[in-house]
Design a protein around this nucleic acid. Structure first.
Lengths: 126, 126
DNA sequence: CATATGATTCAAATTAATTTGAAACAGGTA
DNA sequence: TACCTGTTTCAAATTAATTTGAATCATATG
C-alpha cells in the first residue's frame, strides 16, 4: 500500500472534522513529514535515557566541576564499584563522558556533547 | 556522626593521592557542597524520564508544530488509545504538555516548559 | 613472577516502566 | 433517558532498567 493510500486510510478513521483541525501544517501528511526520522529519535532517546537517573545527574554535576577518578566519584555518591561502573558505562555509551587511564586510575570527564547537554539542562532548570 | 566526620571517613577510604587530585574545588567537601540538592535532582530526572521515550519525543515533535487532539496523535503514531493516554499522562505529569477539553475532544499542546526543553533538545541535536 | 589495587564484566535477582485489553468516564445528541 | 464516541483508568502481563556480588581484567610494585 502506498504512502498516500495509508494516509487516506488514517484520515478515513478519524472523526468528522479532525483532519480539518490540522490546518497550519499541510494536513496529516504535512504533520507526518515533519516528524524527526527514526535514527534521530533513537539518538535523542538514548541521550535522554542516559540523563534519566539521579545518580547519573550527580555524576555529571561532579564532572562539570572537574575531571575525577572513579574512586572519588564512588566516595561522594556512596555506591558500590560495580553499580558505579554500570552508570558510567551508560553515560559513556551516550557519548556524554569519556574516561582516560592514568596509571592505575581512570579519570572521567565530560565530553563536549556532555557539556552541551548538561549546560542546557541547568539553564532550563533556572 | 557530623558532616565533617563523615567526610573525614570518606577521605580515609580513598587511595593515597586521590584527595589531592580534587584541587580546584575545595576538596571532597567542596565537591559535595556543589552538587544539586535532592529535590532539584528529582525534578530533573522526572523531566528526563519523561523525555526518554521515542513515542513521547514524537508526540512533542507533533505538538511543537501545533496543538492537536488525541485522535490525530493516535492516528499518526499508530498506537492504541490506552497506550497513548499513558504516554500523554507521563508528559503531563512532567509539566511538558497540557490538555484542554474542547467539546468531545481534548486538545493537547506544549507548555512553556515543554517548549523550552524541546527547543534545547533540538538545538543540541544540530 | 606474584601480589595488590582500581576498575570493569557477567549472570542472577530485583525493581521499574511499558503494553494490553476490559471497564469506566465525560460530553454531545437523539 | 439512552446511546454513541472520544478519552482515561485499572489490573495483569510483558519487557526493560537497575542492583548485587562474584569473577575477571589491567596496571603498578615488591
Amino acid at each position: 500500500m502506498s504512502g498516500k493510500k495509508i494516509i487516506a486510510k488514517i484520515i478515513d478513521s478519524l472523526p468528522d472534522g479532525a483532519e480539518q483541525s490540522v490546518c497550519t501544517c499541510g494536513g496529516l501528511e504535512g504533520l507526518i513529514s515533519r516528524l524527526p526520522d527514526n535514527s534521530e529519535i533513537e539518538e535523542i532517546s538514548l541521550i535522554f535515557r542516559a540523563l534519566a537517573d539521579e545518580k547519573r545527574i550527580n555524576i555529571l554535576s561532579m564532572l562539570e566541576i572537574q575531571p575525577l577518578c572513579v574512586c572519588i566519584i564512588r566516595a561522594v555518591l556512596d555506591v558500590s564499584d560495580s553499580r558505579l561502573s554500570y552508570h558510567l558505562s551508560i553515560l559513556k555509551k551516550a557519548g556524554l563522558i569519556t574516561g582516560e587511564q592514568k596509571g592505575t586510575w581512570i579519570t572521567y570527564s565530560l565530553t563536549e556533547k556532555g557539556k552541551k547537554w548538561f549546560f542546557s539542562c541547568k539553564q532550563n532548570m533556572e
